[in-house]
Design a protein around this nucleic acid. Sequence first.
DNA 1: CAAAAAACTGTAATGCTATAACATCAAGAA
DNA 2: TTCTTGATGTTATAGCATTACAGTTTTTTG
Lengths: 131, 131
Amino acid sequence: MSPQPRLTKNQDLVFRVLVDAETPLSAYMILDQVREFGIRAPLQVYRALDKLQSLGVVHRLESLNAFVACARADCQRHEMVAFAICDKCRHVSEFSDAQVKAYLDNWMVGAQFLANQTAIEIRGTCRACTR
Amino acid sequence: MSPQPRLTKNQDLVFRVLVDAETPLSAYMILDQVREFGIRAPLQVYRALDKLQSLGVVHRLESLNAFVACARADCQRHEMVAFAICDKCRHVSEFSDAQVKAYLDNWMVGAQFLANQTAIEIRGTCRACTR
DNA sequence: CAAAAAACTGTAATGCTATAACATCAAGAA
DNA sequence: TTCTTGATGTTATAGCATTACAGTTTTTTG
Ligand SMILES: [Zn+2]
Ligand SMILES: [Zn+2]
Ligand SMILES: [Zn+2]
Ligand SMILES: [Zn+2]
């Protein structure tokens, strides 16, 4: 579960909170949970989050302004992942679809667009909340 | 260019600013431009944006916290659209890919996830900024 | 038409999200 | 060791979005 390079104290604190959480958390929610361990300012959380994102072990959900621990083993290799976010229970499913990636890549080649990062976020209602 | 139901004064002001803009605009940037026409508070802009989004003539770019006028003719029919956002010149290309939609829909059927709204945002460098 | 419902407006205050600027410290490479 | 890189701590500030309340206009409908 832990990434290759040893995490610093702050990075580890933030990472653990995200791994334990069952829903995505905002930076300020994380801050609330790490205050008791000595972190006092938002910037300390954001810096840890930046590092964790660059390691591929945390993802930012753009449509929520929130963060989740990666649910997959191979996101370090910068795949294209998608998120299905339940608006009722806030559960997030992370998945990757090679076909979707191929079709988007195809569009980018045609448009001569050089992609850095792709966010795919589906908002809706999960199976458990539908029944 | 104008949507079916007649827009109110505030909605029309906000919509015109977005249509004229060549880049996505934040709500506060829009506010700056409509102050001279009597709009004074952020909430007035957000309310107009909400309506314009529900009409399908404006889209929110989640990864920028910003808004763009729709570049297509048929977004009222709630298609799945994607955005390629240039991080250098901020130009946005809106496109729709039926195959991407088909594959994501397929995943959702398998997961029994009921989608409301899908955001696909590709950040990178456009053709003009690469050369 | 008149009453009721729905949609839109205005304003102030507040809350949430993110970064700038500056000083300091710790670890690893040359 | 000296230099460089990355991490830390703190304060202040910038940027994005909503709550709450009051009033008005427009549309529906009996
Ligand atoms: Zn992942
Ligand atoms: Zn759910
Ligand atoms: Zn559109
Ligand atoms: Zn560009």
